[in-house]
Design a protein around this nucleic acid. Structure first.
Lengths: 140, 140
DNA sequence: TCGTTTGCTTGAGTGCATCAAGGATCATTG
DNA sequence: CAATGATCCTTGATGCACTCAAGCAAACGA
C-alpha cells in the first residue's frame, strides 16, 4: 500500500481532517483498482478514455511524461483493455481508446470505488452544497 | 509526477471538488518533498520520526510491509537524515530516529508543504469548524 | 527542399511496493 | 535448561511507476 502523504503534525483540526480525507481517499482508490487487478495508474488512464485521444494529450492532461503514458498504455493493451490505432490525420500520432472489455472493467471500477459517493452520501443536499462551497473557497 | 487518483466522471459537484482537493493535495505534497530532493515516501517516513521507534512499528503505522520500510530507511540513512541503533531491550529490533540534519530537513519540509495550511487559511474560523464537521460526517 | 518541431517509443536508471525466504533473538513450554 | 515457535528485521527477486536522454518518423515552415 502506498505511504500516506500527510504530515503527522497538523497545526489545526481542519488540516488534520483534510489529511485523513486524502489518505482514506487514496487508499480506497487503490483498493478499488486492486479489486480489478489494476494499479492505480492503470485505473486512472483507463478512466480517461471515454473518448479516443492521442498519447500526448493524455500525458498533458495527467501532467506526466509521455513515455510514462506509453508504458502504462502498453500494459493496458496487453490486458486487452485498450487499443492503439494510427491517427488518420497525423501518421506520427496514435489514438488510444478502450476496448469493450476495457469499458466493462472501467465500469466495474467505477462501481468498486464507492468512497467519494459514500462520503458525499452521508451529507444532506444542503450539507453537500456547503462542503462544495467551502472546499472551493479553500482551494482558492 | 504521480497520476491523479480520480475518476473523471463524478456524479455530483461535491465529488468532483473532493477529487480536485485530493489531487492538488497530493501534488503539493510531492512538490514540497521534491524541493528537498526527497520522494513522498521518504518525506512521509521522516515526518513520523519525532520520536525513535522500531521498524515494525513504523510499518504498521504506515500500513505497509516491513521490508518496504527497511528500504526507505536505508536510503534516508544514506542521506544522513536518519540513524538506526540497536534496541537495548530487544536485540532483534532496531530503533530509527532522525539525525540533527534529518530534523532540519523535516522542518524545512513542513515549511515547504504549505498547501493544507494555505487552504485552511482561506477560511474564517467559523468556516474551518464547519468544514471540519462536514468532513468528519462524510468520513463516517 | 532543408531544417525544425512535434508525437511517440526505446533504453537506462531510480524508487516504491510486495512476496518469499532466512538469520537472529526472544518467549514459552515441557 | 533445551526445544519449539513466534517475532523483528533484512535480503533477494520481481513488477510497476516515473524520469531523462536519445532517437525515429512524420509534419511543418521558411
Amino acid at each position: 500500500m502506498a505511504l500516506p502523504n500527510g504530515p503527522v503534525t497538523a497545526s489545526s483540526e481542519a488540516e488534520a481532517v483534510l489529511f485523513d480525507l486524502v489518505d482514506v481517499y487514496d487508499r480506497a482508490y487503490e483498493a478499488a483498482a486492486a479489486e480489478l487487478s489494476l494499479s492505480p495508474a492503470q485505473a486512472c488512464v483507463l478512466g480517461r478514455l471515454d473518448e479516443r485521444r492521442g498519447m500526448g494529450a493524455l500525458a498533458e492532461e495527467l501532467g506526466c511524461d509521455a513515455s510514462n503514458i506509453t508504458q502504462i498504455v502498453v500494459r493496458l493493451e496487453a490486458l486487452g483493455l485498450v487499443a492503439r490505432e494510427p491517427d488518420p490525420r497525423d501518421r506520427r500520432a496514435r489514438l488510444v481508446g478502450r476496448t469493450p472489455r476495457g469499458d466493462e472493467v472501467n465500469q466495474r471500477f467505477a462501481e468498486a470505488f464507492t468512497f467519494a459517493r459514500t462520503a458525499v452520501g452521508r451529507l444532506s443536499p444542503d450539507e453537500q452544497d456547503q462542503l462544495t462551497a467551502l472546499l472551493r473557497k479553500a482551494l482558492g
